[in-house]
Nucleic acid binder design. Sequence first.
DNA 1: GTTTAACCCTGCACGC
DNA 2: TGCGTGCAGGGTTAAA
Length: 280
Amino acid sequence: MELPEVEVMRRDLEKEVVGKRIKQAEVRPHRNAMRIIRRHARRREFSDRLAGRKITRVDRKGKYLLLFLDGAEVLVVHFGMSGQLLRGTKRQAVPVHTHVVMDFVQGGDLRYVDARTFGEMFVSSTDDLGKVRELDHIAIDPLEDTFTWQEFSRELGRRAAKLKPLLMDQKFVSGLGNIYSDEVLFAAGLRYDRMSETLSSQEVRRLYRAMREVVQDAIRFRGTTLDDEAYVDLFGKPGEFQSELKVYGRKGLACRRCRTPIDSVKIAGRNSYFCPQCQS
DNA sequence: GTTTAACCCTGCACGC
DNA sequence: TGCGTGCAGGGTTAAA
């Protein structure tokens, strides 16, 4: 799950659970559930801090979701690659790989489901949030107003790295993963291996614009749901951006712009897709 | 400072 | 049919 999916989730949660009070939070008994709440020593420690709390606000920092609670506490959620938050009711059986179920006083519940358990959840006091290293080093968000192209240009020049891994580096810019970094580079007409400090100011502008446009479009389409990585929204509905993808997962298929077959390479341990003709 | 690889985990596609 | 293998991916970390 990358920025667009997390943002769609944030917006849905804002409408759906803000103002609701958690009656009780259950951490499921199987061993993997402890991997999800790995920062807590015991199940009780996690669920006790959630019981009785009201959700007051939902924020996002990069790919992290922050559910602010009364009593100056925050529930932090990171989805890894297979994490899901699903709205449910008591009569609905919880899906396999459900690790946490939060019941609301107002009725209904919220389930955290995660097959590969790369995701995590933890409760922090608002005061200690700044001490969470992963959150602290997250770079500027491409959707923020303060994310100007001048600022972006300065940061690009300061680094000497290939664009693809740089775009995925959460300390450089937050929220892009393997799918959207490929889509951004295609939209900007730039190759995965271009060195950041060699971009002309025109190319920097193109990259900057591509980043904002791709992310905003993907949010409008409610995220990307691929076959093997079944992202669904809060209500279990898949996104629709997969049909808009220009390069990701399209190896051997004709480029939508120039008909040249899309190619792929392995870079930084990830498959990267690109058009050999449109990107340089 | 940058880059690479390994690690965590499960589901799925593939070949025999 | 059934099993083993390899791969996918986000982020951190250690080593190159």
